[in-house]
């Protein structure tokens, strides 16, 4: 049983290596993620961000503009997740009365 698990894990790794061979070369400027438009012909997001960041909000750091403005809702959700994690840790570990089971 243990041997079967090891074989499954190793074959999973080999499948991932086989899949990695099909990925674009690291740093290729013509990789699909770096293109101006997607394969379906729709305009790409990152080229738009880089072209308009300075003009839209006078902020040279494109990562900051995407984080706080273009994808502001996303970051609001992430901040709420962090807050919820803090609350959950507080609720799990708060001081219990003596004699309680957990």
């Amino acid at each position: 049983m243990k041997l079967l698990s090891y074989i499954l894990l190793i074959s999973f790794g080999l499948i991932l290596v086989y899949a990695a061979n099909e990925l674009p070369t690291r740093g290729d400027p013509n990789a699909p993620i770096n293109r101006d438009s997607s394969l379906a012909g729709t305009p790409g997001a990152t080229a738009h961000y880089i072209r308009n960041a300075e003009k839209d909000m006078k902020t040279p750091n494109v990562v900051t503009t995407i984080l706080a403005d273009y994808r502001g809702y996303d970051t609001l959700g992430e901040t709420t997740v962090i807050f919820c994690a803090g609350i959950v840790v507080f609720l799990i570990l708060r001081k219990q009365k003596d004699g309680s089971k957990v």
Binding site: P29, I33, A45, T46, A47, I50, R51, V62, V63, L67
Partner: peptide, 13 residues
């Protein structure tokens, strides 16, 4: 601001 000179910022974000 030509995208060819900058790495992709979206995965970093």
């Amino acid at each position: 601001s030509d995208p060819i000179h900058y790495i992709n910022p979206l995965p970093h974000t």
